[in-house]
Structure formats: C-alpha cells, structure tokens
C-alpha cells in the first residue's frame, strides 16, 4: 500500500487497475485516448466501477466518497478525483 503524499495517479495506473477489475471488452482499446470517454462506452458498468475504485482506494490508501463517484463518468474525471484525494493524504 502506497500512502506517499507525492504519489501521482496516472492514466496508466488507472488502465492497469481497470484491467485487473473488469478485464477489457474485445471492442474497446484501453490504450487509446480514453480520458473523456464515458465508462459505459468502455464496457464498465456500475459494479465494475465499484470494483475499480475500491481497488484504487485500497492500493493508494485513500477514501473516495460515493457521492463524488457519481460525477466521475470518465477515466479523466476519475483521475482528477483520485489525485485530489491523494493530496489530502
């Protein structure tokens, strides 16, 4: 578990955890420019997102409130949310 306050959570970190949490739809290229793509379009439903954010929270030692998650509908928005939480650690 990494609780170092200088940690940055990057799109590649997110890609890795997304794959661990819910694999990858055959029709989706996670390596492409996905920052502003809706999670639904990437094949990630609410349960897959719950698993993804739960793994991020565990690995980085942060807490993300459920109500904040509701607004994070794309990888870019989730990145921002995680990095905000990391600055609070």
């Amino acid at each position: 578990m990494n609780t170092n306050h200088t940690t940055q959570f990057t799109i590649d970190d997110l890609r890795r955890i997304m794959r661990e949490s819910a694999g990858q739809d055959e029709a989706v290229d996670l390596e492409g420019d996905i920052l502003d793509t809706h999670f639904q379009e990437l094949g990630y439903d609410s349960l897959a997102l719950l698993e993804t954010t739960s793994r991020i929270a565990r690995e980085y030692g942060i807490a993300i409130a459920d109500e904040d998650l509701d607004g994070a509908e794309s990888p870019g928005a989730l990145l921002q949310l995680v990095n905000q939480a990391l600055t609070r650690v």
């Binding site: 794959r19 949490s21 698993e51």
Partner: peptide
C-alpha cells in the same frame, strides 16, 4: 472466457 468476465 472473455477477459471482462474473469475477475467476476
């Protein structure tokens, strides 16, 4: 099995 289904 599709990779989508493996974690679940």
């Amino acid at each position: 099995i599709p990779s989508r289904l493996l974690p679940q």
